[in-house]
Each structure stands twice: as structure tokens, then as C-alpha cells.
Amino acid sequence: MKLRLCKWAVIAMLMLSLGSPSRAWVSLVDNDKGKLELETRLMFWGVSAGRDDVPSGPVQSENINDFFVRRARFLVRAKASPKLDIYLQLGQDNAGSKVLKPDAGFRIKDFYLNYKRAEGLQLLVGQFKVPFLRQNLESGFNQLLVDRATLPSLRPALEGQRDEGGMIWGNRKGFQYRVAVFDGSDQDATNNRSSFRAATRLSYNWFTPEPGVGYAGTTIGEKRILQVGLQGDTQNHRMDSKDDAGFTTLSRDYRAWA
């Protein structure tokens, strides 16, 4: 009992010390020819769960008390020219050292090029987040709540909330638009009838514009942000491995609006 209390005291102190993740880009190159920056991010979780709370994996015979790395990220961003940016994010997502998510492991999260013809006309190509639901576009390291809801991960996509494709987007004052076309949820080897996937999002910000590709979940009261968004996500003749048993091989037309 005493050992257990000491363990949780140490975890509590670590959690308090890591309450706000430390982030700082380190510049490797910064001159007239371009700019290259690196950053690492870590998020730690402490978990105390009963054996009946474990959703999947091997049958648990005891309660789970664990301290682990929930998210780990290695980021690289480069400015090849005044109009061309390159972004790479490698990462690991772990729902618990004893219960792993399907996409656990260190892998490519984002890898894209963004060409900025003007603030109102930009072209982004590569693997990136699907522009559907603001919560999906927020960084996992500055969310208002401890983690995302399950809804963004229920939609079909590579890497859960990401897909491979291209997007035209831009900003004008508080207004932002995104129109994207993606490879889709299933591969040709599985279903050669599926169409490309299309997603679009329109939003308007009062008070403080948010002109970036990603959003902040919270600014801890430093900025006044009020955004209203309208978005859609669609793909014809797709098959979804997340469907109930007996429906995973059925071709369906997927539609989502919010």
C-alpha cells in the first residue's frame, strides 16, 4: 500500500510538471536561401482503470495502474522559398502500454507541401488531416479536453483522421475555405469501384482570425476566438472495415455533413 501511494505521488508530481507541453522550434538553417526547423513533443498520461474498463486486448485479471507516453512527435518544417513550405510529422499514438490503438507505433502522420500563391489561394498536396470537424483539425497537444471525442475517428480515413490527396484553400480576414480531394478510405486491391473522396469546409472567425492549416484547441484565455463552420465529407461505393460484422464487404455511398 505504501509503495503504491509513493508511485502515485511521483506520477502526480510529473503530471503537474508536464501540465502544459513544452514546445520550441529549433532552427537548423535560417538564411536568404530558406529555413529549416525541428521540434519534438511528448505527452504523458497516468491511468488507473479497472479490468472491466479495458475495451479490447487480452482478458485482464487485475486493475491497470500505468504511466506512459500517450503521444510522441518529431516535426520538421522547411521554407524552400517565400511561397513553398514543406512539413513532416512523425509520431506515435498510444492508448496505454497494455492496450494499444490500431495505429500504435511510430509512423508518418503528416507529410505535405504547401504552395502559397496568395493568402487567399494556396495549394496543399500530400498526407494531411481531412478538413471535416474543427476538433479533427486541432493539435492533440493543446486541446481544451484531455483527448478528442470518438466521432472524428469513426469516419473512414488513412491514419484515422488523415488521408492522401490535395487541397485548395485560403483566407480572407476571418473567412477560410478548404476544398480537398483524397484517395479515399479503401485501396484498389480491396475495392476497385470506390471513387475519390471529397471534403470541403467553410468557416468564419469573429474577433481573432485563424489562418493556419491547423487550429489551437485552447489559448488559455489569451485570445478571443469564436468560429462558425460548415463542412461536408463524401465518397461513393466505399467499403468500411469499421462496419458491423456482415456489412464490411458491402459497397456504400458515404455522406457526412456538419
Rank of each mutant, 00 (worst) to 15 (best):
R41D: 09
R41H: 15
R41S: 15
R41M: 10
L42N: 06
M43Q: 09
M43P: 12
M43I: 12
M43W: 07
M43S: 15
W45N: 00
W45Y: 13
G46I: 02
G46V: 10
V47Q: 15
V47T: 14
S48Y: 13
S48C: 03
S48H: 10
A49Q: 04
A49H: 04
A49I: 09
G50I: 00
G50Y: 03
R51M: 05
R51C: 09
D53G: 04
D53F: 06
P55T: 06
P55M: 11
G57C: 02
G57N: 05
G57H: 02
G57W: 15
P58C: 11
P58Y: 08
P58D: 12
V59M: 08
V59G: 05
V59A: 07
S61P: 03
N63V: 00
I64P: 00
I64R: 04
I64L: 13
N65W: 13
N65E: 15
D66C: 08
D66H: 04
D66G: 10
F67W: 05
F67P: 01
F68K: 07
F68M: 07
F68E: 03
F68D: 00
F68A: 03
V69R: 05
R70H: 15
R70I: 14
R70S: 14
R71Q: 03
R71C: 00
A72H: 01
R73A: 01
R73W: 14
F74E: 04
F74P: 02
F74D: 03
F74L: 12
F74S: 11
L75E: 05
V76Y: 06
R77N: 11
R77A: 08
A78N: 08
A78S: 15
A78C: 14
A78V: 04
K79T: 02
K79I: 00
A80N: 02
A80Y: 06
A80L: 12
S81T: 14
P82E: 06
L84Y: 01
L84F: 03
L84C: 04
L84H: 03
L84S: 10
D85R: 15
D85G: 09
D85L: 15
I86C: 15
Y87R: 03
Y87G: 01
L88W: 13
L88V: 14
L88R: 03
L88E: 08
Q89T: 02
Q89A: 11
L90P: 08
G91V: 00
G91W: 00
Q92R: 09
D93E: 13
D93Y: 11
N94G: 01
N94R: 01
A95R: 03
G96H: 02
G96I: 05
S97G: 09
K98R: 10
K98Y: 10
V99T: 13
V99G: 01
L100P: 05
L100K: 11
K101N: 12
D103T: 02
D103I: 05
A104D: 11
G105N: 02
G105P: 00
G105S: 05
G105K: 10
G105A: 03
F106M: 14
F106Y: 15
F106E: 01
R107C: 07
R107K: 13
I108G: 06
K109C: 08
D110C: 02
D110P: 00
D110A: 13
D110T: 02
F111K: 04
F111H: 00
F111Q: 04
Y112T: 01
Y112V: 02
